[in-house]
């Protein structure tokens, strides 16, 4: 088995960095663990579910998708630099890796998204199996597992009571990465730790069936009462991918920006006429749940939720999507 001591994760990051990868890893700063670019000297915090998801490195929160140079009497399109740096996400959670299937589907649906796909091709995902889960985790209710490999190029599995990590390559990209890091890996036996035990909380298919038939249910009004309409949940979600195009101009050029958007915002899908098909917070919360558990599976044969629990961990108002699904399943019985 290929192994590395857990405390030597920074050495692994160093080796990959030396091999030309931009290394993204969970790093603590000011009490918040976040996926961010690793640099020598930074400790890696493998235990936590970072506040942000690894989608940030495929679909950044703001990016310029078009430029127009302003000239006397008009403007002309200017080139946009499309940079896709060879990147590795180290210690992604299995629920981050699993999100890639859902993201790939939408970014290659009726239009192949150049920016997304370029980054996707340049990205290697090394997930870290979870030996513990918290009360917000629910991957097992949405088809995942604490040691699931979906979407990952390689997986690190804790062994010897967390002292060691065993690396399993799963794809070509994973094998290339293992080769690049060969100097930091050892060959030898290890006793794999048991993955986290996480009982299934709800049946996502039953939830989907109820949703498909209950768009107008009074349930939504009451279920969304606490929602304050911010974007914390959507922005933390590894699958949420709605965006808003904005043109911003200064004296020299106009930039067309693609910014993250959230169905929680009152401005979401507000038409220029003033009409909004989702006029209140209950319609917007319904959109969030429907999109993840009914519309997405119908369209792409995959859920748009991987059970990472980030939205519920972060929500200031205590909105919890798994609890909503449990209630929905009960309504359908």
């Amino acid at each position: 088995m290929k192994t590395i001591e857990t405390r030597r994760l920074p050495d692994l990051a160093q080796a990959l960095s030396a091999a030309g990868y931009c290394v993204v890893a969970p790093i603590e700063e000011g009490g918040v663990v976040r996926f961010r670019e690793w640099a020598p000297g930074l400790a890696i915090a493998p235990g936590a579910v970072p506040a942000n998801s690894s989608k940030d490195f495929l679909f950044p929160r703001s990016e310029v998708v078009a430029r127009f140079a302003l000239e006397p009497g008009g403007f002309s399109p200017a080139p946009v630099e499309r940079s896709a740096v060879k990147t590795v996400v180290l210690c992604a959670r299995p629920c981050d890796a699993a999100a890639l299937t859902a993201l790939d589907a939408v970014f290659n649906w009726d239009y192949r998204d150049g920016a997304y796909n370029a980054r996707r091709q340049a990205m290697t995902v090394v997930s870290l199996a979870c030996s513990k889960a918290d009360e917000h985790c629910f991957c097992t209710s949405v088809g995942g597992a604490p040691d699931g490999v979906a979407g990952a190029d390689a997986i690190l599995r804790p062994a010897d009571g967390g002292q060691l990590l065993v690396l399993d390559e799963l794809t070509e990209k994973g094998r290339a990465l293992a080769q690049a890091a060969a100097g930091t890996l050892s060959e030898g036996p290890a006793a794999l730790d048991a993955p986290a035990v996480l009982p299934r909380r709800f049946d996502s298919e039953a939830v989907g069936r109820w949703l498909a038939a209950n768009f107008e249910s009074p349930f939504w009004k009451e279920a969304a009462l606490a929602c304050l309409g911010c974007g914390a949940c959507a922005y933390a979600c590894p699958v949420c991918h709605c965006f808003d195009l904005q043109d911003e101009t200064d004296h020299a050029e106009c930039r067309r920006l693609r910014n993250w958007d959230s169905c929680g915002f009152g401005l979401f899908t507000l038409h220029a006429s003033g009409h909004n098909p989702r006029p209140d917070q209950s319609a917007r919360w319904r959109q969030r749940v429907m999109h993840k558990f009914s519309i997405y599976p119908q369209k792409f044969k995959t859920l748009a939720c991987t059970g990472c629990g980030r939205c519920s961990r972060l929500c200031q108002a205590g909105m919890a999507i798994a609890a909503t699904c449990e209630r929905i399943e009960a309504l359908g019985r």
Binding site: C230, G231, W260, S262
Partner: peptide, 12 residues
């Protein structure tokens, strides 16, 4: 630089 413009601060 960490702000994602989620406007959770405003909603709160």
């Amino acid at each position: 630089s960490k702000c994602t413009r989620c406007y959770a601060c405003r909603a709160a």
